[in-house]
Simulated assay, not measured.
Amino acid sequence: MFLQKRLALAACLLTLSLGLEASPAQTYDFGRPASAAQATRSVEVVMGDMTFSPKTIDIKAGETVRLVLVNKGQLLHEFNLGDAQMHARHQQEMLQMQQSGMLMPTGMKAMDHGSMAGMDHGAMDHGMKHDDPNSVLVEPGKTAELTWTFTKATNLEFACNIPGHYQAGMVGKLTVSQ
């Protein structure tokens, strides 16, 4: 029995070290992605260079909202839903993407496997794809959408986590009330 427990522990540690989590889908305690057809309303968010308009969004718990993201600025911007701690972690991933040459001022550059040699495998497997369901990148002059069902009352931020953008004030408040 002791050996079985040690083997089970070793298997768990190996799985974690390889990045093979038990659940491949990331979950969020404030909600989940939804299809645009499920939305009960749409909110347009205009992205300027280092600004969001509106700066605040109010939502009711249980509501599904289609966020229409219009980038009227000259730079690539991100719309990311989360709390301050989530944004701080995501900013580190975005910094890695920028340092790798993948994140450019006006868009994303496709990376081949050879150009990622020596990089952190977690960043390659997750962050280097920029495929989180609570986040979307919008190139200058483009429009994108993010539809989300907000499941509980909470206070969140929507932010651009491209290096320096959050710090320059590209962050807004999203309040989910009962």
Rank of each mutant, 00 (worst) to 15 (best):
D49W: 07
D49L: 08
M50D: 14
T51Y: 08
T51Q: 13
S53E: 15
S53F: 09
S53G: 07
S53K: 07
S53Q: 12
S53W: 11
P54F: 07
P54W: 04
K55I: 06
K55Y: 01
K55G: 08
T56V: 12
T56E: 15
T56C: 01
T56D: 12
I57G: 07
D58A: 14
D58I: 03
D58F: 10
D58R: 13
K60Y: 11
K60I: 11
K60R: 15
K60T: 14
K60D: 15
A61M: 08
G62L: 03
G62M: 05
G62N: 03
T64F: 00
V65L: 00
V65T: 01
R66T: 04
L67V: 08
L67D: 02
V68M: 09
L69N: 10
V70A: 13
V70R: 15
V70S: 14
V70Q: 14
V70C: 11
N71I: 12
N71V: 12
K72L: 12
G73C: 08
Q74H: 10
Q74R: 07
Q74I: 01
L75S: 06
L76E: 06
L76S: 02
L76H: 06
H77F: 09
H77I: 04
E78M: 14
E78N: 08
E78H: 07
F79L: 14
F79A: 11
F79C: 13
N80K: 12
N80C: 14
N80H: 14
L81M: 08
L81F: 11
G82L: 00
G82V: 02
D83N: 14
D83C: 04
A84I: 09
Q85D: 05
Q85P: 00
M86P: 00
M86W: 00
A88L: 05
A88R: 13
R89A: 04
R89Q: 06
H90W: 02
H90S: 13
H90N: 09
H90Q: 09
Q91D: 07
Q91T: 09
Q91F: 02
Q91V: 04
E93Y: 04
M94G: 03
M94L: 15
M94V: 05
M97C: 12
M97S: 15
Q99M: 05
S100A: 14
S100Y: 04
G101A: 09
G101L: 10
G101K: 11
M102S: 12
M102P: 02
M102H: 05
L103W: 12
L103R: 10
L103E: 11
M104P: 00
M104N: 01
P105C: 04
P105G: 03
P105Q: 10
P105T: 10
P105D: 06
P105R: 09
T106P: 01
T106F: 01
T106V: 08
T106L: 01
G107Y: 03
M108A: 02
M108E: 14
M108G: 00
M108D: 08
M108Y: 08
M108L: 15
K109I: 05
K109Y: 08
K109R: 15
A110D: 11
A110H: 05
M111D: 06
M111I: 04
M111E: 07
H113L: 07
H113D: 12
H113T: 09
H113G: 00
G114K: 10
M116F: 02
